[in-house]
Amino acid sequence: MIEVIFDLFTSHYNYWMAIILMLIGLYALIAKQNLVKKIIGLNIFQTAIFLFYISFAEVTGGTAPVYLPEGAEALYVNPLPHVLILTAIVVGVSITAVALSLIVRIYEEYGVMDEDELMKVVRER
């Protein structure tokens, strides 16, 4: 029994951790009032997903997907998720940039950064 759990753990812990990170990010997105905190949460959420991708690209005992010098046979890890995540990281930073500029704008307009207060101010205006 314990062994099974242990096996499961060793075989999936990466995913689990990634999931926990995701959840932390989500939690921040929901529960945190501060807008910047939300974006931090978003970042964590996104990177957790990236981690998830990289995790399933991993092959035990593999090497990085750069061809070794001619002739050397090797077990490479799956390169495709890496490519995807490269793209996704860029997307992530783009979103972060836009989000932060929005926050700056909101702060300039309303002078608040907390969601509840913001809603209050918005409704009053």
Binding site: L26, L29, I30, A31, E115, D116, L118, M119, V122, R123
Partner: peptide, 12 residues
């Protein structure tokens, strides 16, 4: 109708 709603509830 109250305009503008917070994002948190949406995620919930």
């Amino acid at each position: 109708q109250t305009p503008i709603q917070g994002g948190g509830y949406g995620i919930i």
